[in-house]
Amino acid sequence: MEITLTHYLLLAAAIFVTGMVGFIVRRNAIVMLMCVELMLSSVNIVFAAFSRFHLDGGGHVFVLMNFAVAAAEAAIGLAILVEIFRRRRTVNVDDLKTLME
């Protein structure tokens, strides 16, 4: 079976949906952060796939940039979470809604 673009896209979609569902249903901020990473990865797959099939290196550039963004995001996000955990003793997002008002 030849692996076509569709397969890549289906894989990416599957991972994206996993991430999205995880983001929506879980309350643990760390898990949610990991789900965001999953979604970003699925996008990377799409970029890479299109790049390969269109023979255009631009996609790869974006993938690399996405890595950087994801790494920075994870770093800052985790730092914030650590700080929140220190103050609130919880990382449950449902309890973190002081910005509502």
Binding site: F23, M32, V93
Partner: peptide
Amino acid sequence: QNGLVRFYAW
């Protein structure tokens, strides 16, 4: 605007 991140995501 209920402050629930998951609601926003939904």
